[in-house]
Design a protein around this nucleic acid. Sequence first.
DNA 1: GCCCAGGTATAAA
DNA 2: TTTATACATGGG
Length: 285
Amino acid sequence: MEYKITERGAEIKLNDVFNLKNTFDCGQCFRWTENSDGSYSGIVRGKYARVISDNDTIIIEGSNEEDFLNIWKGYFDLDNDYNEIRKEISTLSPKLECALESIDGIRILSQEPWEALCSFIISQNNNIPRIKGIVTRLCECFGEKGEHGYSFPSAKRLAECSEEDLSPLRAGFRAAYISDAARKVASGEIILEDMYTAPIGDCRTKLMKIKGVGPKVAECTLLYGLHRLDAFPIDVWMKKALSTVFSELSVKELGSYAGIAQQYIFHYVRLNHGGDATAGNSQVS
DNA sequence: GCCCAGGTATAAA
DNA sequence: TTTATACATGGG
């Protein structure tokens, strides 16, 4: 990865691919919006950027060098070479090899831990358009207004809210879960930042003390919010597909890139099983 | 209208 | 330990 800073922003030359659509619209994040020219706009840690993809170059418009190094490089996981990761994973199984080809250029974002936790609490038994709507209203109601939009509200800010205060979100039964998560994080009962390095089993256990956080939300929080590539949400919600399509694989075999592998598997199953990711029945010879 | 959403809490088997 | 249901809301 090489980068240079121009008046336009940060320009990055990659060894691997960065497919914006596959990355931003796959359900790992809910705050990026596509522009009419195929670029995407979003706000991370209160900083706005517009991302443009041009072959092996991506441009993070609006980023200076400091923000590139402190925010965007880590957020977009630019130090990881996904070609190398793909090679490593693809040796495990021919079926998995197909999965890897089916969804090229996806990257696992390293989102803000609290935003990820909150977003995936909202995501349960919900669809992506509505998740985005609730998250948008959450930011508009309780985030800080900047030049280009709102930041994601802090746990502290949300911990101050009653459930009635959260009613404009129209989050349904999830409002109580958001409150409980905000209180536990704001009080220090749960320290998300420790989970970058703590044993992953301990992280799961702690996260699941929050009301409304089960195995799936916990894994997603770890994968997308703490960049734990060893987290593996697919293992807990897509057992059928995993057992029928990739029965020969285990999380252990997928190694430290289990999270990335799960993204490929998810898209493969969606593409090859009529969009029903939970089906996984008999279509594999 | 009807079905259901990359789930979870709760109450039974 | 596994299996069934309710849950708030609204997208398609």
